[in-house]
Design a protein around this nucleic acid. Sequence first.
DNA 1: TATCAACACGAAACCGTTTTCGAAGCTTTG
DNA 2: CAAAGCTTCGAAAACGGTTTCGTGTTGATA
Lengths: 340, 340
Amino acid sequence: MLKQKITLKHIAKELDVSISTVSKALKNSEEISRDTKDRIQAFAKLYNYKPNNIAISLKNKRTKNIGVIIPDIVHHFFTTVVRGIEKYANAQGYNVIVCLSDESFDKEVINMEMLANGSIDGFIMSLSAGTEKKKDFNHLKEVTEQGIPLVLFDRVTNEIRCDKVVIDDILGAYLATEKLLKEGRKKIALLTTEDFFSVSKNRNLGYEKALRDFGLVVEEKYILRLPFMDIDEDKISDFLNSIVPDAVLSVNEIFGIHCMRVLQRKGLKVPEDVSIIGFTDGLLARHANPSITSIAQHGEKMGETAARMLIERVEREDESNYRTEIIQPTIITRESTLNF
Amino acid sequence: MLKQKITLKHIAKELDVSISTVSKALKNSEEISRDTKDRIQAFAKLYNYKPNNIAISLKNKRTKNIGVIIPDIVHHFFTTVVRGIEKYANAQGYNVIVCLSDESFDKEVINMEMLANGSIDGFIMSLSAGTEKKKDFNHLKEVTEQGIPLVLFDRVTNEIRCDKVVIDDILGAYLATEKLLKEGRKKIALLTTEDFFSVSKNRNLGYEKALRDFGLVVEEKYILRLPFMDIDEDKISDFLNSIVPDAVLSVNEIFGIHCMRVLQRKGLKVPEDVSIIGFTDGLLARHANPSITSIAQHGEKMGETAARMLIERVEREDESNYRTEIIQPTIITRESTLNF
DNA sequence: TATCAACACGAAACCGTTTTCGAAGCTTTG
DNA sequence: CAAAGCTTCGAAAACGGTTTCGTGTTGATA
């Protein structure tokens, strides 16, 4: 009952030819006579022969696997990136091995080591919070020094020379802030995280730049820095008691939506009294009531781009001209802003 | 500059011993003298030797890779399952190769074939919508006949004999409906999809059973069947014009949250006028305003369970006693119900 | 001193392919 | 008719490991 996988050796023995002949016949080599090829190919089809991937990988030192290491998978943005990677990679005949670092430096290192010993042809990754805090990139350095191609996306570092894909976070925040300013908003609050995230830092910069460009000053009291991934409506509530903004820019979806909840409970109307724009065009923004105007990061495009850069490098195998592709964010207008 | 990966052969030549000696020394074999082992191990450590995964896979016909095929990754439930699989698998030294079927039968088949030729030790999958509609499971049959272990989760079929993990959807819907009834609700609407999804069908059954147990009749006019993955607030609005429910049970998060939006725009208050319970305890339910009472499907536990069942079977390699583990759903009480 | 076990190591097969090279057997050519 | 050239195939090495089995050396024992 257990149909054992058939190998070249089996076919060779059965048809009384050599393994090499079978191999060549199945590749339609000119070396083999029409007759023999027909016999072998028919037999192979009958028994549904498929070459063993592992053996092929060992032979040509190519696995056709891509290793993807992301901090978290229960996260809309990363999920869209993975989808983009998957689509492009699959179309090129590559498989995607996904590992989660769980925002931990140690897990990131372990995962890289697990995959770096032949399992994959290259890495696509976004740094864990732990790594960004620690600023230790030796595991990345080791991998690139071994000649394994690496593409960093979103959470990147200048310490490593490799291909990168980022979005222009400064521009994104600028666009958002500009839109709020053009609606006539003057007291624009910023909900952000601690600064060690490269993305948050850049978003803060864009916000500040827009304010200054419009002749306003950046006031620290309008900025609320919340701990990463911690949703504490009380802190937001306290913040909104200390100042009364007429608009809010949030560097992520979660902070934005909870800010809206707090505002609504204080009896304020969105967008009549307060406009809200949030980063990340995810499910929450789309389905909230009112739906939230967002800065789209185009994760799927980012994933596709990263996969394209990686596969190109894997197949060209040169190690020069590292590029950084910059994805342009766009603003998606929804109900949480005035939109005239 | 390009540090080539070092192999047993390199070490052997450098230290003037045989490859077998190196291999044994690195495994601390008793056969090799303390002296030689020390030399070899020191050298290996110095040059950071790591055995090549592919070679090992070829030798022991074990890849330590698990293939996961899911319909979509930008979907909170599947994402939590993947996380559960990843955690358990990683802890056991396995890697996870994720493939997306995109709800398409053809892609599901292609993905399985790509992985079935040696790349993985076993499959964990949830059927695509296309496959459930087509009722063609030959690709699954082929794989199991080859002796490749398979675990189905959530969207499963009776046609295939293998391990399965499902949640008790009937119970979940029953619990939800029961809660609404106990709140005194009498006119409970059901938002569901077409019947070919095994999950939706069971949820409908649970809803109907609860109504009957409480002496109510199931009225078709209280049931709205929406196309899969299509969010059309107008249809919901029309539905809510034709009947006036005092509670709504939605078989997924999206329908539920949009139903709430429509109700709110009609001036109805949730939960004062209408209670809402939705399946899938995802981001939307958690962060909505008001937050939505949900049936938690415990995706992470499901993933863990599936991974455990698969790895056990891979490592025991027997082919009997297929089990179906049933995850118990639980109700998570939030703001969209009365909760007394 | 001859015998034998223990020790330490190497040769070789094997996993399933690909690919180079050599060598038959046949046909063509001068 | 001999040399050359095709056609068609097989042997063997290679990828990087693991593992079985054999063997030479050493020291102990009778």
